[in-house]
Design a protein around this nucleic acid. Structure first.
Length: 387
RNA sequence: GGGUAGGUUGAGCAGGUGGUGAGCUCAGCUGACUGUAAAUCAGCCGUCUUCGACUGUAGAGGUUCGAUUCCUCUCCUGCCCA
C-alpha cells in the first residue's frame, strides 16, 4: 500500500448484520472524504456546466476525472507542466482519476484489446493510441490526483460468453499487478478493480485476487451497465462478504441513482461515482424526494413553484419550474448549470442523509419516496407527478 | 389597373412538366440516459379501427381511363411597372 489513502470506519455495521452499511472517513492527501460518498464525474477536468465553487457548494468532497480523455486533450504532460490536475482545474480537494479502463468498453468499435493492453482510436480525430497498465499509470502519475486506478478491462453484463468474462477478468488481474509495479508516486493512492462479470465463482476469484494485492482501495467494476438490480445485488453479496475484515474502502464504480446508491450502501459500499445525475440534468430531468420530473414537460411552463421545495441549491433558492422550463426550451446555457447544480446537490444531500442516519443507527432499508428514482423496469414506476 | 413569381400537413422547405407527395429541418409531445464519443438519443408529430388503411398539393370548374402536375376562372401573397 502506498499509505496515501487511509480508510477509517467510524460506525461499523451492526452486529445483527441487518445491514452492511458503515460510516467512514477516507483520508487522502488533499482532504478527508466522509463515506458513504458520491463523486461527481468531471471527465474533462470539469464538472460539466459548473464552476468549482458550485461543485463545492453541492457538498462534493472528491470528484472523478478521466485519464483517457485528459491524455488525448489537453495532454497529461501539459497538465503536469501546468502544475498538475488540481492546480490546472482549480480544484483543491481530492480527485480520483479513472484509469481509462472504462473506455475499453465504452468506445466499442474504436479499440482493439489484447493481453498486453488496448489500442484506441481517438474519438476526436481517429488517431491511434496505445494504452497499457504502465501507460495508464504514467499518465495518472502526471495528472497527480490523490487516487489513481489500476488499468482494467470491464466486463459488460451483456457479454454472456463465459470465456470472454474469464479472459477479461484474467487480464484485469495481470494488469492490476503491472499497475502496482508501475506505480511510483507514494503520495498518490492506487485502487484496484475487481471484475468477474455476473459469474459468482469468477467474482469471488477476482475479489480474493485483487484484495490480495496491496491496493489502497478496492473497486467493484462492471456493474453500472445493463445488469438487473437483482444481478447486481447478487454480485455485491458475493464480493462484500469476501472482503469482511479488510480495512480498505470499497468503491462501486459507475452507480448513481438514489435508489441504487441506497441499496449498495446497505450491501457495504463506501464510495460511488456516476455521470447520471449530471447528464440527466443536462437533458432536463430533475430529481426531487418525490421522484423525478422532466422539466420540459408542458405542464411546467406555468408552474411558479421551485423544482424542490426547501432545496438549498442555486436553482431552487431563486427560480421557478416555469423559468427553468423556459431556459431549456430556449436552449439557454443557464439551464444546464442550474439543473446540474440541483441534481448534484440532491445526490450529495442524499448521501449526507445516509451518513446522518448511519450515525444514529437507523438507516431505512428502503425509502418509499425513492421508488420512482429506480429504473423503470425495476418497479414499473412512471414519471413522477410533482407533489 | 398591367405584368411577374408563387400558394404543399403549426413554421420553413423538398418533390412533383399525367399513373407512388404523409419526405426533410425547425417547433411541438413523450420517453430514455449509471467508472461521459451524450447541452445527447429514441418514438410520435393529417385522420382512423395504426404490422395497415384513408384523406390531403389555395378554391371552383374543365380536359383525361387517371390531375398535385395541363387548361379556365376566382381568391390570397411577394416583387416590378403605372
Amino acid at each position: 500500500m502506498t499509505g496515501a489513502a487511509r480508510f477509517e470506519v467510524v460506525v461499523p455495521p451492526p452486529a445483527d448484520r441487518s445491514t452492511r452499511a458503515r460510516l467512514g472517513l477516507l483520508h487522502l492527501p488533499r482532504g478527508v472524504v466522509e463515506t458513504p460518498a458520491f463523486m461527481p464525474v468531471g471527465t474533462n477536468a470539469t464538472i460539466k456546466a459548473l464552476h468549482p465553487d458550485e461543485v463545492e457548494e453541492t457538498g462534493a468532497q472528491i470528484i472523478l476525472a478521466n485519464t483517457y480523455h485528459l491524455y488525448l486533450r489537453p495532454g497529461h504532460e501539459r497538465i503536469a507542466r501546468l502544475g498538475g490536475l488540481n492546480e490546472f482545474m482549480s480544484w483543491p480537494h481530492p480527485i480520483l482519476t479513472d484509469s481509462g479502463g472504462f473506455q475499453v468498453v465504452s468506445l466499442g468499435d474504436l479499440n482493439a484489446i489484447d493481453d498486453d493492453g488496448v489500442t484506441f482510436q481517438s474519438h476526436h480525430d481517429g488517431s491511434r493510441h496505445r494504452f497499457t497498465a504502465e501507460r495508464s499509470m504514467e499518465i495518472q502519475a502526471a495528472l497527480g490526483a490523490d487516487v489513481a486506478v489500476a488499468f482494467d478491462q470491464p466486463v459488460p453484463p451483456s457479454s454472456t460468453d463465459p470465456r470472454d468474462v474469464a479472459i477479461a477478468t484474467e487480464r484485469t488481474h495481470r494488469w492490476a499487478v503491472r499497475s502496482l509495479e508501475a506505480h511510483r508516486r507514494p503520495e498518490q493512492a492506487l485502487f484496484g478493480v475487481i471484475q468477474g462479470g455476473l459469474d459468482p465463482e469468477l467474482r469471488l476469484q477476482s475479489t480474493s485476487f485483487i484484495a490480495g494485492l496491496p491496493f489502497d482501495g478496492l473497486n467493484i467494476g462492471g456493474l453500472a451497465g445493463d445488469e438487473t438490480p437483482a444481478e447486481r445485488e447478487a454480485v455485491l453479496d458475493i464480493v462484500i462478504p469476501a472482503l469482511d475484515g479488510d480495512p480498505r474502502v470499497r468503491y462501486l464504480m459507475g452507480l448513481g441513482s438514489p435508489a441504487d446508491l441506497l441499496e449498495a450502501v446497505h450491501r457495504g459500499v463506501d464510495l460511488f461515482d456516476s455521470v447520471l445525475p449530471a447528464r440527466v440534468a443536462r437533458n432536463g430531468q430533475l430529481w426531487a424526494p418525490g421522484g423525478r420530473l422532466n422539466i420540459r414537460n408542458e405542464r411546467f411552463r406555468d408552474d411558479p413553484g421551485p423544482v424542490q421545495e426547501g432545496c438549498r441549491c442555486l436553482l431552487c433558492r431563486r427560480f421557478s419550474r416555469a423559468y427553468l422550463a423556459h431556459l431549456f426550451r430556449a436552449n439557454e446555457l443557464l439551464a444546464y448549470r442550474l439543473a446540474t447544480c440541483h441534481n448534484l446537490t440532491f445526490t450529495l444531500d442524499f448521501m449526507a442523509g445516509i451518513r446522518a442516519a448511519l450515525r444514529t443507527g437507523n438507516l431505512p432499508e428502503r425509502l418509499p419516496e425513492l421508488r420512482q428514482h429506480a429504473r423503470r423496469r425495476d418497479h414499473g414506476a412512471s414519471a413522477v407527478q410533482p407533489a
